[in-house]
Lab assay of single mutants.
Amino acid sequence: MDEEYDVIVLGTGLTECILSGIMSVNGKKVLHMDRNPYYGGESSSITPLEELYKRFQLLEGPPESMGRGRDWNVDLIPKFLMANGQLVKMLLYTEVTRYLDFKVVEGSFVYKGGKIYKVPSTETEALASNLMGMFEKRRFRKFLVFVANFDENDPKTFEGVDPQTTSMRDVYRKFDLGQDVIDFTGHALALYRTDDYLDQPCLETVNRIKLYSESLARYGKSPYLYPLYGLGELPQGFARLSAIYGGTYMLNKPVDDIIMENGKVVGVKSEGEVARCKQLICDPSYIPDRVRKAGQVIRIICILSHPIKNTNDANSCQIIIPQNQVNRKSDIYVCMISYAHNVAAQGKYIAIASTTVETTDPEKEVEPALELLEPIDQKFVAISDLYEPIDDGCESQVFCSCSYDATTHFETTCNDIKDIYKRMAGTAFDFENMKRKQNDVFGEAEQ
């Protein structure tokens, strides 16, 4: 370990593993360490099931009705991949897709007046949907046509809207959309967690709705994908990429100290040895004095023996409960997957309800979601602090990732990755940087 590296990475969460992969592909010498004996950090999948019970201090362990412990891979952080989103792009560019198998999530649902409705995925579904009345549908269709044709580089498509100054509230007004449709559009399509976006320039919202539609167009059922064997497969896929390009991995490796000289990182000390480096990437748990708390998320993992009611017996789905429907500031989400994804025993389902904490009784906040899941065989409640770095790391060369937020997709995580890359490399992130180099010394032969 007593060696000189360009970059040392602490923690094998998804953000850290993707950055480690990119740095290795770009010719950097990388050492990647984790104090845990497993990959994934906060974003790991726990197996066998006995391990999950232990982690949540349920000492009696799983009953026999849960089947074989080894058949379970339970995500600690519930997220899906947008089919046309940035993480899929990263997987394709790096060819990490060859280590993973994905399934399309069967449906996306939205909560309205105590019931759940399928988010329409085709024009026919939209016309048949009970989510809105006849005239509302016509106006909504006009709005969707506007979004589909919108091109930020072609003012002819703006229809009198200025993407940089017109607020989204004004765009909704222009198409005369009612409150329910606005809730549905902002939260189930643009996937905002709160209503803060309404008074911001509309460009980002329009682009988010386009991303949803384009992702949906790829597979038809929903815009989301999920990897077989759980999300823990993602960091491992990128760790393989890093290793192929010469990255060194050490799990179960305690970090005793991060060594600084004149305010700059110069190395990491572990078990009496020092590895030197020019730059350091880590998750917040490794540098508690360089991060601040930015809120909390509650996630309740529920094991069920039945599909969720009114989802047409889907073996995977997402449910969004827009905040307006339950008098909150932030949406509540449910991600459900099952034995069909090799993450649970035969006939079992895993539904994870999550939201940003707003009160001193977080469990009560998630109740509307839990009511949709009854009866629940077993619950595991996790309340996590969200951390963000206190500075950009440019001076110390210590670059810290943000905690995983309450969103049900990876777009915010990818933004964090691109942002850290830019601060480390001094140049904007470009997907081309992730391409495997042809015929290089570490390149794998085609399968």
Rank of each mutant, 00 (worst) to 15 (best):
L10F: 11
G11M: 11
C17Y: 02
I18N: 01
V25A: 10
V25G: 12
K28N: 07
D34L: 03
Y38D: 00
Y38R: 02
Y39A: 02
E42G: 09
P48H: 00
E60M: 14
E60L: 11
A83S: 11
L92V: 08
T97S: 08
T97I: 07
T97C: 13
G107R: 12
F109E: 03
Y111H: 08
G113E: 08
K115Q: 03
E123K: 13
S129A: 00
E136R: 03
R141I: 09
K142Y: 03
F143D: 01
F150L: 10
N153G: 07
D162C: 14
Q164H: 07
S167I: 05
S167L: 14
V171F: 03
V171I: 09
D180V: 00
T185P: 04
T185I: 13
G186A: 08
L189M: 08
R218H: 14
L231W: 02
G232A: 08
P235H: 00
A239I: 15
L241G: 06
S242F: 05
G246C: 09
G246R: 06
Y249C: 08
N252H: 11
K253G: 15
P254Q: 14
V255L: 07
D256Y: 06
I259S: 03
V265K: 15
V265G: 02
G267R: 02
K269N: 08
E271P: 04
E271D: 10
A275G: 07
K278Y: 15
S285I: 05
D289G: 10
D289F: 10
V291E: 05
G295Y: 12
I300F: 07
I300R: 00
C302L: 13
H306L: 00
P307T: 08
N310C: 05
D313F: 01
C317D: 04
V326Q: 03
V326G: 08
V326L: 13
S330P: 02
D331I: 13
S338P: 02
S338F: 01
S338Y: 00
N342E: 04
A345P: 11
A353T: 10
E358Q: 03
T360K: 00
D361S: 10
E363D: 12
E365D: 06
E365Q: 06
P368M: 13
A369R: 03
P375R: 00
D377E: 00
F380L: 11
E388A: 08
G393A: 12
G393R: 10
F399W: 15
Y404P: 13
D405E: 02
D405R: 02
A406G: 10
H409Y: 03
T412V: 08
T413P: 02
D419A: 12
I420G: 03
M424E: 15
F431L: 11
E432W: 12
K437I: 00
N439E: 15
V441L: 07
E444A: 06
Q447H: 06
